[in-house]
Nucleic acid binder design. Structure first.
Length: 578
RNA sequence: CGGGGAGUAGCGCAGCCCGGUUAGCGCGCAGCGUUCGGGACGCUGAGGCCGGAGGUUCGAAUCCUCUCUCCCCGACCA
């Protein structure tokens, strides 16, 4: 491609309000342009890169038996009613009516369509297993799009769906995807960890997320330094200390003025925060008042609390609602409250003699004990794991890292097939539900995440596997001496003929402009020819990752470039790095 | 949805508090000349109903009301 004709120009300055490196660099390099909040056009350079990411995905999913297909973006609401998600999903799903006044939706995902197809196409165990996938536009009206291409409303996603006879078959597909995803992200040059995750709105029995570590990630993952454990903070476990052995002391009320926070209370009583009980109040979707109690040094994990209570959503309770159950904001404790579901974290059960609120302003109880002074309806793990907590397997201190979710895999089981009547007849003539799995990768998000992990202060440093072009060919010439441009024209033609992907900067720009743009766009190899190199019959070659350039005779330029590309590609073959 | 910030030329910004000639600056863009290996210089020029609608006023980019959009933090979220 000749840059003089390339649609989309580089920008010296990015709009002032962009924050993420990937967003700024993709804007500046002319890869993407915004159309609205969370809605982007891919310019030719960006489209080429995303297409390469998608091709890698395609190859690896094909390799595990995937059959590519295409499912619609617009769905009749009926299929979403059939799964129950038409009502379960909120305004994140865009609904509208067609001209015949029929309810329609813009697809956020395609489990419903696959389940509908499965019940039409699959009758017999002889037809299973199956794996289908598509790379399709999705629309999710996120409450808040952010971070350039990391979190958008319209995006392209590869999602595959497995259909199986039984759990063993589903296991195989799940593990196949796990391996395929590892290969995909390695081929893209992404550093990532696989973590256990919450199944969220998808439902189902198991889920893992592929997380790319990044300072700008929206998720937090906890990782054992020994490699024994990694999990999204939403579900992360940690090893609990042994139960305290201190003998219970009688509960007593003490005056504690102006101690509405755990911190102030601990300071006032001169005790560690771990000797206090913290009360957190929610209203569940069912309307039940959820009274969560946890030791003062820990925080309630809402995902775990939802699971422990069976509530799908939790909203913070208001002061009036808190008083209505006999508690007092700032001085709340489970001692003597009514009409609520008390959920105690294991830490509260295992730590004797905690200081808890007295449910009246300015007073706390000291030496409260679960089971004696108050009862819990549920005792469960509802604590958030944080850095430094012990690994649940080996006890080593966990680290916490921010990460971007670039892919996920779900075992859906019969969640959808049962509701859709997607069944098959087994060898004994028994009708059984097809077991499903779903597996997603956002190709735009992967691309942006690659930029997050591969850039410097000058621009993007593309892994060769996904670079829009492998070579930036830079001609440095003046009107009075067009010889370098003519030499570059020849090199360009030869590279095209040799099948080398080359972006030829043939513009009448000064050297500095061209070098800076080449660094910004970030192709792995830069080949330049100027009057100076030509005087020695040479071309200059520089890897984007290297500060040093080398000079080679003109006729060795293309073989050298080819070798450098091959070297840059070699580690990106998808195999584990030993 | 809550909190904060911003909409003035393609991009980055000033002007607004304290209303008053043709609304500025840098970059970019077009032409000419000089220059030519890390974002050159000079001259000339094009480009803006100051986000939109109402209002106050002799007069509004500037003051008031409403509204739309974008960004950031939070809530939310495969």
């Amino acid at each position: 491609m000749r840059m003089a004709h390339l649609f989309g120009r580089t920008l010296r300055e990015a709009p002032g309000d962009v924050e993420l490196p990937s967003h700024r660099l993709m804007l500046r390099s002319g890869m993407v342009r915004p159309l609205g909040a969370g809605i982007y056009s891919l310019l030719p350079l960006g489209f080429r890169t995303v297409t390469k990411v998608e091709q890698i995905i395609r190859e690896e999913i094909n390799a595990i038996g995937g059959q590519e297909m295409m499912m619609p973006v617009v769905h009749p609401a009926d299929v979403w009613r059939e799964s129950g998600r038409y009502d379960a999903v909120g305004s994140e799903m865009t609904r509208f009516k067609d001209r015949g006044d029929r309810d329609m939706v813009l697809a956020m995902t395609h489990e419903e369509v696959v389940a509908d197809l499965a019940r039409q196409e699959i009758n017999s165990y002889r037809q299973l297993p199956q794996l289908v996938y598509h790379i399709q536009t999705k629309w999710r009206d996120e409450p808040r799009a952010r971070g350039g291409l990391i979190r958008v409303r319209e995006f392209t996603m590869k999602d595959s769906y497995s259909l199986d006879l039984d759990e063993a078959g589903l296991d195989v597909q799940y593990r196949n995807h796990w391996r395929a995803y590892e290969r995909i992200f390695r081929r893209c040059g992404l550093g990532f960890v696989v973590v256990g995750a919450d199944t969220g709105m998808m439902g189902g029995s198991a889920s893992h997320e592929f997380m790319a570590l990044s300072d700008y990630g929206e998720d937090i993952v906890l990782i054992c330094p020994n490699g024994d454990y990694a999990a999204n903070q939403e579900v992360a476990l940690f090893r609990r200390e042994a139960a305290g052995t201190e003998a219970p002391r009688p509960m007593a009320e003490v005056e504690t003025p102006n101690t509405t926070t755990i911190q102030k209370l601990a300071e006032y009583l001169e005790i560690p925060v771990a000797k206090t009980a913290k009360a957190v109040f929610f209203i569940g979707e069912s309307g039940a008042f959820i009274f969560a109690v946890i030791r003062g040094d820990m925080d309630v994990n809402e995902t775990k609390l939802r699971k422990a209570t069976g509530e799908r959503t939790l909203t913070p309770a208001t002061a009036e609602q808190i008083k209505a159950i006999g508690a007092e904001p700032g001085y709340g404790s489970p001692v003597g409250v009514r009409n609520c579901v008390v959920v105690a974290d294991e830490s509260v059960r295992d730590t004797p003699n905690l200081v808890a609120g007295a449910n009246k302003v300015g007073y706390h109880y000291v030496d409260t004990n679960l089971g004696r002074d108050w009862q819990a309806d549920v005792v469960a793990d509802i604590a958030s794991a944080v850095a430094e907590m012990p690994c649940p397997h080996c006890g080593a201190a966990l680290t916490a890292e921010r990460a971007i979710e670039v892919g996920n895999i779900f075992k859906l089981g019969s969640r959808y097939s049962a509701m859709f009547g997607a069944t098959y007849l087994d060898a004994d003539g028994q009708s059984k539900p097809i077991l499903m799995g779903s597996y997603g990768i956002g190709s735009g998000r992967v691309t942006a995440t690659i930029v997050e992990q591969h850039h410097d202060d000058k621009g993007i440093i593309w892994p060769a596997s996904v670079a829009p072009y492998h070579v930036s060919l830079v001609s440095i010439f003046t009107e009075s001496d067009p010889a370098p441009a003519q030499a570059c024209d020849r090199l360009y033609d030869e590279m095209l003929a040799a099948g080398i992907e080359v972006l030829y900067d043939d513009r009448a720009e000064r050297a500095g402009v061209k070098f800076n743009d080449a660094d910004l766009i970030g192709c792995p190899v830069r080949l330049s020819v100027s009057a100076r190199t030509l005087a020695n019959g040479q071309a200059e070659i520089k890897a984007r990752t290297s500060p040093e350039a080398i000079f080679v005779p003109l006729d060795e330029a293309i073989p050298t470039v080819r070798r450098m590309i091959a070297e840059a590609m070699a580690p990106l073959n998808g195999d584990p790095i030993s």
